[in-house]
Design a protein around this nucleic acid. Structure first.
Lengths: 154, 154
DNA sequence: TTAGGTGCAAATTCTTTGCACCCTG
DNA sequence: CAGGGTGCAAAGAATTTGCACCTAA
């Protein structure tokens, strides 16, 4: 399933992460590169444990906590992202009206917002290959006012 | 901030949950009704602990595990939903290309899909009230093929 | 009456932390 | 060589489970 452009993209991303780490005076360790490589090349959405197991095959001594530390670091650096709310645990939603979410990627807070425009979106055909779509929810990610403020202050 | 239509909606939803529970021969306990009420009326996205604390004010003896059990039950019954992947822990995403997610609400798996159409969506104005939107990701929720199959078999 | 539901406490599972040693720059 | 980064083991959260008692139907 690996196509040339993907491999090429991966190579570029490996160069990119090195630059980013150096710019910030962070060390370019084996572990960091391997962990990033693992997430970047995965077409999946692995959890920490899965990444740990994969990386172990190449670096048999990595520890799970290094995997965690590195993943959060990569997230902070904007090199990878999370699916759904970042860092936080399950959150429940009792709002049954059509609505959408604004997720703050910094503090993890999730705000509802409404949009007639977005409510109109229909389940795309591509979904048929995966299953049966029932609900559509648009997720906008960014920084909430509070976190923007904290950022400018520091 | 509570408007009459909301209160009215909540009343209808309380009637609805009772019907659903009865239809399935599930008991209409105090705890279940209070927990549902708490999630349904919340404009927020509370986690289990928060719901627990609120419910405790009315039912001082509820336990956290009942809250969990009830929330998962309500989820199974389709009376509430979760934000992001259901049940699962943090999942990382190394895919930096614009893409969207199909989340199976049963097994929690998350599949990427692509759509030029959806990539065109712009950050709606409503976001300005909340913060700075950076990325848009459409989330389609439903059942994946595997879970559809398991369901029809049982 | 009688299953299904609950509360308690203990067990799991997931994630983070403190600290001594190691390796990148 | 110096300080950040790692691995280990242990601590801390979050969530689940077993079991005896309770209560809605």
């Amino acid at each position: 399933m690996k196509t040339d452009p993907e491999v090429e993209g991966l190579r570029k991303r490996m160069t990119h992460i090195k630059q980013v780490l150096q710019q910030r005076d962070l060390k370019l360790t084996h572990q960091r590169l391997e962990i990033f490589n693992e997430v970047a090349k995965s077409g999946d959405h692995p959890d920490a444990e899965t990444i740990y197991r994969s990386v172990r095959q190449r670096l048999p001594t990595v520890s799970l906590d290094t995997v965690y530390r590195t993943l959060w670091l990569l997230l902070d650096l904007g090199l990878i992202s999370t699916v759904g709310p970042s860092r936080e645990r399950v959150h429940f939603d009792g709002n049954t009206q059509p609505h959408h979410h604004f997720v703050c990627t910094k503090c993890g807070k999730i705000y509802d917002f409404y949009s007639r425009e977005l409510d109109k979106i229909e389940v795309p055909e591509a979904i048929q290959a995966l299953g049966q779509g029932e609900k559509i929810n648009v997720e906008v990610r960014g920084l909430c006012h509070q976190c923007l403020k904290n950022k400018s202050e520091s």
